[in-house]
Amino acid sequence: MCGNNMSAPLPAIVPAARKATAAVIFLHGLGDTGHGWAEAFAGIRIPHVKYICPHAPTMPVSLNMRMSMPSWFDIYGLSPDADEDESGIKRASENIKALIDQEVKNGIPSHRILLGGFSQGGALSLYTALTTQQKLAGVVALSCWLPLRKSFPQASANSANKDMHVLQCHGDADPLVPFVFGSETAEKMKSLINPANITFKSYRGLPHSACPEEMVDIKKFIEKQLPPISD
């Protein structure tokens, strides 16, 4: 797919049906690509919103016996006390901030950009939103956790997003990222930003995946955080 480990193909994009006045940048999970999520968002698209689903670079992943696969950063283990790839997480976060800057250059202000992701991508979206100086419209965090959580609140002391709205979704039958990781992450987030702005939704019987009911909730959240603006 690509020879250089740090390069990745161009994002999958669902263009706005009319002039884009808002954008959603959504990060896929480990071993995936942006294409499936672009299709999912095409199914719930809102006319003035552009959806950008980047692809992670391919790299060896410790969790999967160092096999190379699309990954935003290395994962050493899935237990709460597992070591974390701090430099990789920070590097990936800087890349996402650059992507946000690119959209700002394209004419969409950062406060009209919503960040989101699934699993590893959701983890990266939360970390990025808490550490960036870019004021965002909010975050959609699906089936995920907060990476480098012990570095907060210090890391977020100067965050521009103390009042951002967060929609966290998690299946209660998730065998990979246990439901308790999601609920504990929501509690941690309430100590870092305005707790009134955090919504945590659980989905009965849902494993490590998304479901139609969840996509409807995501669409409602996007509509609320990124309303149309008159020209």
Results as ranks from 00 to 15, higher is better:
N64T: 11
L99G: 00
N158M: 10
F152L: 04
V140Q: 00
G121P: 06
H208E: 03
A23K: 01
Q120H: 13
D83E: 11
S68T: 13
E213N: 10
L126C: 04
R45W: 04
L27V: 06
L142Y: 02
K201W: 05
P109C: 04
M1S: 13
S125N: 14
G36Y: 05
D174W: 14
E213F: 05
F221P: 04
N197G: 06
F118V: 04
Q168V: 02
A129E: 04
A98W: 06
N161M: 03
E223K: 13
A42E: 12
A8M: 04
A186N: 06
D85T: 07
F179S: 01
R66L: 10
V61F: 05
A210D: 00
S93N: 00
T132M: 13
L148Q: 12
T33G: 01
H165G: 03
D174C: 11
G31L: 06
T21N: 06
A22L: 10
T132Y: 08
N194G: 03
S93G: 12
A141C: 06
K97C: 15
L167P: 01
R66F: 09
S125V: 13
S209W: 06
G121D: 03
V140D: 14
F118C: 01
A196Y: 12
P47G: 07
L78Q: 08
S119T: 06
V180Q: 12
K201I: 03
L63S: 12
V14D: 02
K188G: 04
R45N: 11
S183P: 01
W145F: 15
L130S: 10
L136D: 05
C211Q: 14
E214G: 08
R66H: 08
H35A: 11
D85R: 07
M69W: 10
G205I: 07
L78P: 00
G138M: 08
N64R: 03
I25H: 05
I222A: 05
T185R: 11
P153E: 12
G36V: 05
Q102S: 13
T128L: 13
H111A: 05
A160V: 14
L148C: 14
R45C: 15
S110E: 06
I96H: 07
M189E: 07
I113C: 04
P54D: 14
W72T: 10
P70D: 00
M59N: 06
G34Q: 09
A82D: 15
F181S: 07
S191M: 14
Q225E: 15
S156R: 05
A20F: 07
I13D: 02
F200R: 08
R204L: 08
V216I: 10
D81Y: 04
E213A: 14
